[in-house]
Design a binder for these strands. Structure first.
Lengths: 242, 242
DNA sequence: CGCTGTCTTGATCACTATCAAACCGAGTGG
DNA sequence: CCACTCGGTTTGATAGTGATCAAGACAGCG
Protein backbone atom coordinates (compact mmCIF):
# COMPACT_ATOMS: atom_id res chain seq x y z
CA UNK A 1 0.00 0.00 0.00
CA UNK A 2 2.80 2.38 0.90
CA UNK A 3 4.59 3.80 -2.11
CA UNK A 4 8.36 3.42 -2.21
CA UNK A 5 10.22 6.60 -2.97
CA UNK A 6 11.98 4.71 -5.67
CA UNK A 7 8.69 4.10 -7.40
CA UNK A 8 7.18 7.49 -6.58
CA UNK A 9 4.78 8.35 -9.40
CA UNK A 10 4.96 12.04 -8.63
CA UNK A 11 8.67 12.43 -9.06
CA UNK A 12 8.44 11.44 -12.70
CA UNK A 13 6.30 14.36 -13.68
CA UNK A 14 7.84 17.18 -15.59
CA UNK A 15 7.58 19.62 -12.74
CA UNK A 16 10.17 18.02 -10.54
CA UNK A 17 13.94 17.93 -10.66
CA UNK A 18 15.71 14.65 -11.06
CA UNK A 19 17.08 12.86 -8.02
CA UNK A 20 20.11 10.64 -7.73
CA UNK A 21 19.81 7.05 -6.52
CA UNK A 22 21.54 8.13 -3.37
CA UNK A 23 19.09 10.94 -2.76
CA UNK A 24 16.17 8.63 -3.27
CA UNK A 25 17.59 6.20 -0.72
CA UNK A 26 18.13 9.00 1.77
CA UNK A 27 14.62 10.25 1.31
CA UNK A 28 13.27 6.75 1.73
CA UNK A 29 15.01 6.42 5.10
CA UNK A 30 13.38 9.64 6.15
CA UNK A 31 9.89 8.45 5.28
CA UNK A 32 7.84 6.87 8.02
CA UNK A 33 4.55 6.19 6.31
CA UNK A 34 1.58 7.48 4.43
CA UNK A 35 -1.57 9.23 5.52
CA UNK A 36 -4.95 9.77 3.97
CA UNK A 37 -7.25 12.62 4.91
CA UNK A 38 -10.75 13.59 3.85
CA UNK A 39 -11.70 17.00 2.54
CA UNK A 40 -12.17 19.62 5.22
CA UNK A 41 -9.67 17.97 7.54
CA UNK A 42 -6.82 20.06 8.90
CA UNK A 43 -3.47 18.38 8.28
CA UNK A 44 -1.45 20.88 10.30
CA UNK A 45 -2.76 23.55 12.63
CA UNK A 46 -1.56 27.09 13.19
CA UNK A 47 0.50 27.31 16.34
CA UNK A 48 0.95 23.56 16.62
CA UNK A 49 4.27 21.81 17.13
CA UNK A 50 4.00 19.12 14.56
CA UNK A 51 6.15 16.05 14.89
CA UNK A 52 5.81 15.38 11.21
CA UNK A 53 6.55 16.77 7.81
CA UNK A 54 4.43 15.85 4.83
CA UNK A 55 4.74 15.75 1.11
CA UNK A 56 1.47 15.81 -0.75
CA UNK A 57 1.14 12.79 -3.02
CA UNK A 58 -2.29 13.60 -4.38
CA UNK A 59 -5.19 15.89 -3.69
CA UNK A 60 -5.45 19.63 -3.22
CA UNK A 61 -5.78 21.84 -0.17
CA UNK A 62 -5.37 25.31 1.25
CA UNK A 63 -3.08 27.04 3.70
CA UNK A 64 -4.67 29.74 5.81
CA UNK A 65 -4.37 31.97 8.84
CA UNK A 66 -7.23 33.06 11.07
CA UNK A 67 -7.53 36.50 12.62
CA UNK A 68 -9.05 36.99 16.04
CA UNK A 69 -11.93 38.88 14.47
CA UNK A 70 -12.94 35.76 12.59
CA UNK A 71 -11.57 36.74 9.22
CA UNK A 72 -9.50 34.25 7.30
CA UNK A 73 -6.63 34.74 4.89
CA UNK A 74 -5.91 31.91 2.49
CA UNK A 75 -2.17 32.09 1.83
CA UNK A 76 -1.81 29.55 -0.89
CA UNK A 77 -3.37 26.57 -2.58
CA UNK A 78 -1.65 23.28 -1.91
CA UNK A 79 -0.75 20.95 -4.77
CA UNK A 80 0.83 17.51 -5.04
CA UNK A 81 4.55 17.73 -4.45
CA UNK A 82 4.23 20.48 -1.85
CA UNK A 83 6.08 20.06 1.40
CA UNK A 84 3.99 20.78 4.48
CA UNK A 85 5.22 21.55 7.97
CA UNK A 86 8.66 22.95 7.27
CA UNK A 87 7.88 26.00 9.37
CA UNK A 88 7.07 23.94 12.42
CA UNK A 89 10.10 21.77 11.79
CA UNK A 90 12.60 24.60 11.76
CA UNK A 91 10.89 27.34 13.76
CA UNK A 92 9.01 25.28 16.30
CA UNK A 93 5.47 26.06 15.33
CA UNK A 94 3.26 26.47 12.32
CA UNK A 95 2.32 29.95 11.19
CA UNK A 96 -0.74 28.72 9.36
CA UNK A 97 -3.19 25.88 9.08
CA UNK A 98 -3.24 23.42 6.18
CA UNK A 99 -6.55 21.89 5.27
CA UNK A 100 -7.41 19.35 2.60
CA UNK A 101 -10.00 20.08 -0.05
CA UNK A 102 -11.08 16.74 -1.28
CA UNK A 103 -9.29 13.50 -0.48
CA UNK A 104 -5.59 13.94 0.07
CA UNK A 105 -2.82 11.39 0.30
CA UNK A 106 0.33 12.35 2.12
CA UNK A 107 3.81 11.03 2.55
CA UNK A 108 4.82 11.27 6.22
CA UNK A 109 8.33 12.16 7.35
CA UNK A 110 9.67 12.25 10.85
CA UNK A 111 10.52 15.72 11.99
CA UNK A 112 13.27 14.48 14.24
CA UNK A 113 15.08 13.15 11.21
CA UNK A 114 15.27 16.58 9.67
CA UNK A 115 18.44 17.35 11.53
CA UNK A 116 20.05 14.17 10.25
CA UNK A 117 19.07 15.27 6.83
CA UNK A 118 20.98 18.50 7.25
CA UNK A 119 24.02 16.70 8.56
CA UNK A 120 24.17 13.91 6.05
CA UNK A 121 22.88 15.42 2.85
CA UNK A 122 23.85 18.94 1.87
CA UNK A 123 22.11 18.58 -1.44
CA UNK A 124 18.82 17.78 0.15
CA UNK A 125 19.14 20.46 2.77
CA UNK A 126 19.82 22.89 -0.03
CA UNK A 127 16.60 21.66 -1.59
CA UNK A 128 14.77 22.41 1.63
CA UNK A 129 16.08 25.96 1.56
CA UNK A 130 15.10 26.16 -2.07
CA UNK A 131 11.54 25.19 -1.21
CA UNK A 132 11.36 27.72 1.59
CA UNK A 133 12.74 30.47 -0.65
CA UNK A 134 10.26 29.55 -3.36
CA UNK A 135 7.38 29.74 -0.95
CA UNK A 136 8.64 33.14 0.14
CA UNK A 137 8.79 34.17 -3.49
CA UNK A 138 5.24 33.07 -4.07
CA UNK A 139 3.94 34.87 -1.01
CA UNK A 140 5.57 38.03 -2.28
CA UNK A 141 3.60 37.69 -5.48
CA UNK A 142 0.41 36.98 -3.60
CA UNK A 143 0.97 40.00 -1.38
CA UNK A 144 1.48 42.12 -4.47
CA UNK A 145 -1.75 40.78 -5.88
CA UNK A 146 -3.83 41.53 -2.83
CA UNK A 147 -2.21 44.90 -2.34
CA UNK A 148 -2.00 46.19 -5.88
CA UNK A 149 -4.33 44.33 -8.22
CA UNK A 150 -8.03 45.08 -8.44
CA UNK A 151 -10.66 42.37 -8.22
CA UNK A 152 -10.63 41.37 -11.87
CA UNK A 153 -6.84 41.36 -12.07
CA UNK A 154 -6.56 39.40 -8.85
CA UNK A 155 -9.02 36.70 -9.85
CA UNK A 156 -7.40 36.36 -13.26
CA UNK A 157 -3.96 36.14 -11.65
CA UNK A 158 -5.10 33.43 -9.27
CA UNK A 159 -6.75 31.35 -11.97
CA UNK A 160 -3.63 31.53 -14.13
CA UNK A 161 -1.40 30.48 -11.25
CA UNK A 162 -3.60 27.55 -10.35
CA UNK A 163 -4.04 26.47 -13.94
CA UNK A 164 -0.35 26.59 -14.80
CA UNK A 165 0.58 24.66 -11.71
CA UNK A 166 -2.04 22.03 -12.47
CA UNK A 167 -0.89 21.76 -16.06
CA UNK A 168 2.63 20.96 -14.99
CA UNK A 169 1.31 18.21 -12.79
CA UNK A 170 -0.76 16.71 -15.58
CA UNK A 171 -3.92 17.57 -13.73
CA UNK A 172 -5.45 19.33 -16.71
CA UNK A 173 -7.40 17.70 -19.51
CA UNK A 174 -7.83 19.93 -22.56
CA UNK A 175 -8.23 23.34 -20.91
CA UNK A 176 -10.03 21.80 -17.99
CA UNK A 177 -9.18 20.85 -14.44
CA UNK A 178 -10.88 19.84 -11.25
CA UNK A 179 -11.00 22.70 -8.73
CA UNK A 180 -12.31 21.39 -5.43
CA UNK A 181 -12.18 24.78 -3.72
CA UNK A 182 -15.11 26.92 -2.66
CA UNK A 183 -15.55 30.43 -3.97
CA UNK A 184 -15.12 31.52 -0.37
CA UNK A 185 -11.62 30.03 -0.44
CA UNK A 186 -10.68 32.12 -3.45
CA UNK A 187 -12.30 35.20 -1.91
CA UNK A 188 -10.28 34.75 1.27
CA UNK A 189 -7.13 34.25 -0.77
CA UNK A 190 -7.61 37.55 -2.56
CA UNK A 191 -8.95 39.64 0.28
CA UNK A 192 -12.28 40.06 -1.52
CA UNK A 193 -15.80 39.40 -0.36
CA UNK A 194 -17.53 36.25 -1.49
CA UNK A 195 -20.17 38.21 -3.36
CA UNK A 196 -17.71 40.30 -5.28
CA UNK A 197 -15.60 37.29 -6.12
CA UNK A 198 -18.65 35.54 -7.45
CA UNK A 199 -19.59 38.49 -9.62
CA UNK A 200 -16.07 38.82 -10.94
CA UNK A 201 -16.02 35.15 -11.86
CA UNK A 202 -19.39 35.59 -13.55
CA UNK A 203 -17.95 38.31 -15.77
CA UNK A 204 -15.03 36.13 -16.83
CA UNK A 205 -17.52 33.40 -17.61
CA UNK A 206 -19.75 35.67 -19.68
CA UNK A 207 -16.75 36.90 -21.62
CA UNK A 208 -15.81 33.28 -22.32
CA UNK A 209 -12.38 33.69 -20.82
CA UNK A 210 -12.62 31.22 -17.96
CA UNK A 211 -15.47 29.24 -16.50
CA UNK A 212 -15.51 27.71 -13.06
CA UNK A 213 -18.62 25.76 -12.23
CA UNK A 214 -19.48 22.49 -10.57
CA UNK A 215 -15.93 22.11 -9.31
CA UNK A 216 -14.42 22.31 -12.77
CA UNK A 217 -12.33 25.14 -14.15
CA UNK A 218 -12.20 25.66 -17.89
CA UNK A 219 -9.73 28.17 -19.26
CA UNK A 220 -10.74 29.25 -22.73
CA UNK A 221 -8.21 31.97 -23.28
CA UNK A 222 -5.15 31.57 -21.13
CA UNK A 223 -3.22 34.37 -22.79
CA UNK A 224 -6.00 36.86 -22.28
CA UNK A 225 -6.50 35.69 -18.72
CA UNK A 226 -2.82 36.21 -18.01
CA UNK A 227 -2.96 39.64 -19.59
CA UNK A 228 -5.92 40.61 -17.45
CA UNK A 229 -4.07 39.35 -14.41
CA UNK A 230 -0.93 41.33 -15.25
CA UNK A 231 1.07 38.14 -15.37
CA UNK A 232 2.50 35.66 -17.83
CA UNK A 233 1.81 32.12 -18.92
CA UNK A 234 5.36 31.12 -18.15
CA UNK A 235 5.58 27.81 -16.36
CA UNK A 236 7.24 27.81 -12.93
CA UNK A 237 10.74 26.31 -12.75
CA UNK A 238 11.33 22.68 -11.89
CA UNK A 239 11.34 22.11 -8.20
CA UNK A 240 12.80 19.55 -5.87
CA UNK A 241 10.47 17.10 -4.22
CA UNK A 242 10.90 15.55 -0.82
CA UNK B 1 37.69 49.46 8.58
CA UNK B 2 36.17 46.07 7.88
CA UNK B 3 34.57 44.51 10.90
CA UNK B 4 35.69 41.04 11.86
CA UNK B 5 32.85 38.59 12.45
CA UNK B 6 34.48 37.82 15.75
CA UNK B 7 34.02 41.41 16.82
CA UNK B 8 30.65 41.87 15.15
CA UNK B 9 28.74 44.43 17.21
CA UNK B 10 25.40 43.26 15.90
CA UNK B 11 25.69 39.68 17.03
CA UNK B 12 25.83 40.74 20.65
CA UNK B 13 22.39 42.25 20.67
CA UNK B 14 19.56 40.42 22.34
CA UNK B 15 17.80 39.57 19.14
CA UNK B 16 20.34 37.13 17.85
CA UNK B 17 21.18 33.57 18.76
CA UNK B 18 24.60 32.75 20.09
CA UNK B 19 27.23 31.35 17.72
CA UNK B 20 30.05 28.96 18.47
CA UNK B 21 33.67 29.91 17.86
CA UNK B 22 33.67 27.49 14.99
CA UNK B 23 30.60 29.02 13.42
CA UNK B 24 32.10 32.47 13.68
CA UNK B 25 35.24 31.28 11.93
CA UNK B 26 33.20 29.65 9.18
CA UNK B 27 31.20 32.79 8.67
CA UNK B 28 34.35 34.85 8.55
CA UNK B 29 35.72 32.69 5.73
CA UNK B 30 32.53 33.30 3.85
CA UNK B 31 32.77 37.07 4.14
CA UNK B 32 34.43 38.94 1.32
CA UNK B 33 34.04 42.55 2.38
CA UNK B 34 31.80 45.39 3.35
CA UNK B 35 29.72 47.80 1.36
CA UNK B 36 28.16 51.16 2.05
CA UNK B 37 25.16 52.51 0.18
CA UNK B 38 23.27 55.78 0.33
CA UNK B 39 19.54 56.07 0.84
CA UNK B 40 17.52 55.46 -2.30
CA UNK B 41 20.09 53.09 -3.73
CA UNK B 42 18.99 49.62 -4.81
CA UNK B 43 21.16 46.92 -3.24
CA UNK B 44 19.60 44.07 -5.16
CA UNK B 45 17.28 44.27 -8.13
CA UNK B 46 14.26 42.17 -9.01
CA UNK B 47 15.14 39.62 -11.65
CA UNK B 48 18.86 40.04 -11.19
CA UNK B 49 21.33 37.21 -10.70
CA UNK B 50 23.31 38.54 -7.84
CA UNK B 51 26.75 37.18 -7.19
CA UNK B 52 26.54 38.29 -3.59
CA UNK B 53 24.67 37.83 -0.40
CA UNK B 54 24.48 40.59 2.18
CA UNK B 55 23.85 40.93 5.84
CA UNK B 56 22.73 44.36 6.94
CA UNK B 57 25.06 45.78 9.55
CA UNK B 58 23.30 49.08 10.02
CA UNK B 59 20.63 51.17 8.36
CA UNK B 60 17.11 50.44 7.23
CA UNK B 61 15.59 49.69 3.86
CA UNK B 62 12.64 48.23 1.99
CA UNK B 63 12.00 45.21 -0.18
CA UNK B 64 9.52 45.74 -3.00
CA UNK B 65 8.10 44.40 -6.22
CA UNK B 66 6.92 46.48 -9.15
CA UNK B 67 3.91 45.68 -11.28
CA UNK B 68 3.84 46.44 -14.99
CA UNK B 69 1.10 48.99 -14.38
CA UNK B 70 3.49 51.01 -12.26
CA UNK B 71 2.13 50.05 -8.89
CA UNK B 72 4.55 49.00 -6.21
CA UNK B 73 4.16 46.54 -3.35
CA UNK B 74 6.50 46.93 -0.43
CA UNK B 75 6.96 43.44 0.96
CA UNK B 76 8.88 44.14 4.09
CA UNK B 77 11.05 46.64 5.89
CA UNK B 78 14.70 45.69 6.15
CA UNK B 79 16.52 45.88 9.48
CA UNK B 80 20.06 45.25 10.64
CA UNK B 81 20.75 41.55 10.82
CA UNK B 82 18.61 40.76 7.80
CA UNK B 83 20.06 38.54 5.12
CA UNK B 84 19.61 39.85 1.59
CA UNK B 85 19.85 37.91 -1.61
CA UNK B 86 19.07 34.40 -0.46
CA UNK B 87 16.44 34.05 -3.16
CA UNK B 88 18.90 34.80 -5.91
CA UNK B 89 21.46 32.55 -4.31
CA UNK B 90 19.26 29.47 -4.24
CA UNK B 91 16.70 30.11 -6.97
CA UNK B 92 18.84 31.97 -9.46
CA UNK B 93 17.15 35.33 -9.41
CA UNK B 94 15.65 37.84 -7.04
CA UNK B 95 11.91 38.08 -6.73
CA UNK B 96 12.07 41.61 -5.41
CA UNK B 97 14.23 44.70 -5.19
CA UNK B 98 15.95 45.83 -2.00
CA UNK B 99 16.54 49.52 -1.56
CA UNK B 100 18.21 51.41 1.25
CA UNK B 101 16.41 54.14 3.16
CA UNK B 102 19.13 56.19 4.69
CA UNK B 103 22.76 55.14 4.83
CA UNK B 104 23.20 51.40 4.99
CA UNK B 105 26.28 49.35 5.77
CA UNK B 106 26.38 45.79 4.51
CA UNK B 107 28.47 42.71 5.05
CA UNK B 108 29.20 41.07 1.71
CA UNK B 109 29.34 37.31 1.19
CA UNK B 110 30.26 35.44 -1.92
CA UNK B 111 27.37 33.60 -3.41
CA UNK B 112 29.59 30.87 -4.78
CA UNK B 113 30.60 30.02 -1.26
CA UNK B 114 27.03 29.24 -0.32
CA UNK B 115 27.34 25.73 -1.56
CA UNK B 116 30.44 25.16 0.53
CA UNK B 117 28.47 26.40 3.44
CA UNK B 118 25.87 23.73 2.88
CA UNK B 119 28.48 21.04 2.56
CA UNK B 120 30.65 21.98 5.48
CA UNK B 121 28.27 23.39 8.04
CA UNK B 122 24.91 21.75 8.60
CA UNK B 123 24.20 24.06 11.49
CA UNK B 124 24.62 27.15 9.40
CA UNK B 125 22.67 25.72 6.49
CA UNK B 126 19.89 24.95 8.95
CA UNK B 127 20.07 28.60 9.97
CA UNK B 128 19.65 29.63 6.35
CA UNK B 129 16.54 27.53 6.11
CA UNK B 130 15.37 29.03 9.37
CA UNK B 131 15.75 32.52 7.94
CA UNK B 132 13.87 31.61 4.80
CA UNK B 133 11.08 30.00 6.79
CA UNK B 134 10.86 33.05 9.02
CA UNK B 135 10.60 35.34 6.05
CA UNK B 136 7.84 33.12 4.70
CA UNK B 137 6.11 33.34 8.05
CA UNK B 138 6.31 37.10 8.06
CA UNK B 139 4.98 37.40 4.53
CA UNK B 140 2.03 35.27 5.57
CA UNK B 141 1.27 37.78 8.28
CA UNK B 142 1.68 40.70 5.92
CA UNK B 143 -0.61 39.04 3.41
CA UNK B 144 -3.19 38.56 6.14
CA UNK B 145 -2.88 42.21 7.04
CA UNK B 146 -3.39 43.50 3.54
CA UNK B 147 -6.16 41.03 2.85
CA UNK B 148 -8.09 41.12 6.09
CA UNK B 149 -7.30 44.19 8.16
CA UNK B 150 -8.82 47.58 7.49
CA UNK B 151 -6.72 50.69 7.15
CA UNK B 152 -6.52 51.54 10.84
CA UNK B 153 -5.77 47.96 11.83
CA UNK B 154 -3.17 47.63 9.12
CA UNK B 155 -1.31 50.80 10.01
CA UNK B 156 -1.38 49.91 13.69
CA UNK B 157 -0.11 46.41 12.91
CA UNK B 158 2.75 47.75 10.82
CA UNK B 159 3.83 50.28 13.42
CA UNK B 160 3.84 47.62 16.13
CA UNK B 161 5.92 45.27 14.00
CA UNK B 162 8.46 47.92 13.17
CA UNK B 163 8.63 49.21 16.70
CA UNK B 164 9.11 45.80 18.29
CA UNK B 165 11.79 44.87 15.83
CA UNK B 166 13.60 48.14 16.46
CA UNK B 167 13.33 47.69 20.20
CA UNK B 168 15.05 44.36 20.03
CA UNK B 169 17.85 45.92 18.09
CA UNK B 170 18.27 48.72 20.61
CA UNK B 171 17.20 51.22 18.01
CA UNK B 172 14.56 52.76 20.26
CA UNK B 173 15.14 55.47 22.83
CA UNK B 174 12.27 55.86 25.30
CA UNK B 175 9.27 55.16 23.05
CA UNK B 176 10.99 56.74 20.14
CA UNK B 177 12.82 55.57 17.05
CA UNK B 178 14.11 56.91 13.77
CA UNK B 179 11.91 55.92 10.86
CA UNK B 180 13.56 56.94 7.59
CA UNK B 181 10.71 55.69 5.42
CA UNK B 182 8.29 57.79 3.42
CA UNK B 183 4.57 57.57 4.01
CA UNK B 184 4.37 56.31 0.47
CA UNK B 185 6.49 53.34 1.51
CA UNK B 186 4.07 52.45 4.25
CA UNK B 187 1.11 52.98 1.94
CA UNK B 188 2.63 50.63 -0.63
CA UNK B 189 3.33 48.08 2.07
CA UNK B 190 -0.28 48.03 3.15
CA UNK B 191 -1.98 48.32 -0.21
CA UNK B 192 -3.44 51.70 0.75
CA UNK B 193 -3.29 55.05 -1.02
CA UNK B 194 -0.88 57.65 0.24
CA UNK B 195 -3.69 59.99 1.15
CA UNK B 196 -5.59 57.45 3.15
CA UNK B 197 -2.45 56.30 4.93
CA UNK B 198 -1.70 59.87 5.85
CA UNK B 199 -5.18 60.39 7.25
CA UNK B 200 -5.02 57.17 9.21
CA UNK B 201 -1.70 58.19 10.73
CA UNK B 202 -3.19 61.58 11.58
CA UNK B 203 -5.95 59.89 13.57
CA UNK B 204 -3.49 57.83 15.56
CA UNK B 205 -1.56 61.00 16.23
CA UNK B 206 -4.65 62.92 17.38
CA UNK B 207 -5.59 60.09 19.69
CA UNK B 208 -2.09 60.20 21.17
CA UNK B 209 -1.46 56.56 20.36
CA UNK B 210 1.46 56.91 17.98
CA UNK B 211 3.08 59.87 16.30
CA UNK B 212 5.25 59.70 13.23
CA UNK B 213 6.63 63.02 12.09
CA UNK B 214 9.94 64.35 10.86
CA UNK B 215 11.31 60.86 10.48
CA UNK B 216 10.70 59.93 14.09
CA UNK B 217 8.14 57.48 15.39
CA UNK B 218 6.88 57.86 18.93
CA UNK B 219 4.71 55.12 20.34
CA UNK B 220 2.73 56.41 23.29
CA UNK B 221 0.53 53.42 23.92
CA UNK B 222 2.00 50.23 22.54
CA UNK B 223 -0.63 47.98 24.09
CA UNK B 224 -3.47 49.95 22.59
CA UNK B 225 -1.70 50.12 19.26
CA UNK B 226 -1.30 46.37 19.27
CA UNK B 227 -4.93 45.93 20.19
CA UNK B 228 -6.02 48.15 17.34
CA UNK B 229 -3.79 46.17 15.01
CA UNK B 230 -5.23 42.84 16.15
CA UNK B 231 -1.80 41.72 17.22
CA UNK B 232 0.35 41.37 20.32
CA UNK B 233 3.37 43.07 21.80
CA UNK B 234 5.23 39.81 21.98
CA UNK B 235 8.82 40.09 20.85
CA UNK B 236 9.88 37.95 17.90
CA UNK B 237 12.09 34.92 18.69
CA UNK B 238 15.84 35.10 18.60
CA UNK B 239 17.17 34.62 15.13
CA UNK B 240 20.41 33.47 13.63
CA UNK B 241 22.62 36.01 11.97
CA UNK B 242 24.90 35.41 9.03
C1' DC C 1 14.25 82.68 -4.49
C1' DG C 2 12.15 79.50 -7.27
C1' DC C 3 12.11 74.42 -7.44
C1' DT C 4 11.33 69.90 -5.79
C1' DG C 5 9.88 66.33 -2.74
C1' DT C 6 7.03 65.17 1.03
C1' DC C 7 3.29 65.84 3.98
C1' DT C 8 -1.37 67.49 4.81
C1' DT C 9 -6.19 68.42 4.12
C1' DG C 10 -10.75 68.94 1.71
C1' DA C 11 -13.98 67.35 -1.91
C1' DT C 12 -15.73 63.86 -4.77
C1' DC C 13 -16.03 59.33 -6.75
C1' DA C 14 -16.19 54.31 -7.20
C1' DC C 15 -14.87 49.82 -6.21
C1' DT C 16 -16.00 46.56 -3.21
C1' DA C 17 -18.41 45.28 1.21
C1' DT C 18 -22.50 44.22 3.35
C1' DC C 19 -27.22 42.86 3.59
C1' DA C 20 -30.90 40.01 1.97
C1' DA C 21 -33.07 36.54 -0.44
C1' DA C 22 -33.64 33.24 -3.90
C1' DC C 23 -31.81 29.22 -6.17
C1' DC C 24 -29.98 24.59 -6.73
C1' DG C 25 -28.34 19.95 -6.18
C1' DA C 26 -27.44 16.48 -2.80
C1' DG C 27 -28.65 14.15 1.10
C1' DT C 28 -31.92 12.42 4.45
C1' DG C 29 -35.83 10.81 6.74
C1' DG C 30 -40.70 10.06 7.11
C1' DC D 1 -41.12 9.74 -3.39
C1' DC D 2 -41.74 14.00 -1.57
C1' DA D 3 -40.76 17.52 2.06
C1' DC D 4 -37.07 19.40 4.34
C1' DT D 5 -32.49 20.74 5.32
C1' DC D 6 -27.91 22.12 4.25
C1' DG D 7 -23.83 23.96 1.95
C1' DG D 8 -22.69 26.45 -1.74
C1' DT D 9 -23.77 29.66 -5.59
C1' DT D 10 -26.12 33.50 -7.65
C1' DT D 11 -28.28 37.99 -7.98
C1' DG D 12 -30.19 42.60 -6.64
C1' DA D 13 -30.10 46.68 -3.55
C1' DT D 14 -27.65 49.73 -0.62
C1' DA D 15 -23.77 51.45 2.05
C1' DG D 16 -19.09 52.59 3.06
C1' DT D 17 -14.20 52.35 3.09
C1' DG D 18 -10.72 53.91 0.78
C1' DA D 19 -9.22 55.79 -4.06
C1' DT D 20 -8.63 59.67 -6.77
C1' DC D 21 -8.34 64.52 -7.68
C1' DA D 22 -6.72 68.99 -6.38
C1' DA D 23 -4.33 72.31 -3.95
C1' DG D 24 -1.84 74.32 -0.14
C1' DA D 25 1.97 74.09 3.41
C1' DC D 26 6.59 73.48 4.45
C1' DA D 27 11.50 72.41 4.38
C1' DG D 28 15.64 71.62 2.01
C1' DC D 29 18.40 72.97 -1.76
C1' DG D 30 20.82 74.66 -5.93
Amino acid sequence: MVTKCEACPLRRRGLFTAMSEEEIRQTQRFKVGEMMVEGGTPVLTEGAHSAQLFTVLSGLGIRYKMLENGRRQVLNFVFPGDLLGLQAAVMGEMGHTVEARGKMRLCVFDRAALWDFFKSSPGRSFDLTWLAATEEHFLGEALTTVGQRNAEQAVAWALVKVYLRATQLDLTVSNTMTLPFKQQDLADALGLSLVHTNKTLAKLRERQIATWRDGTLTVNDLDLLAELGLTTTQAPPRRPIM
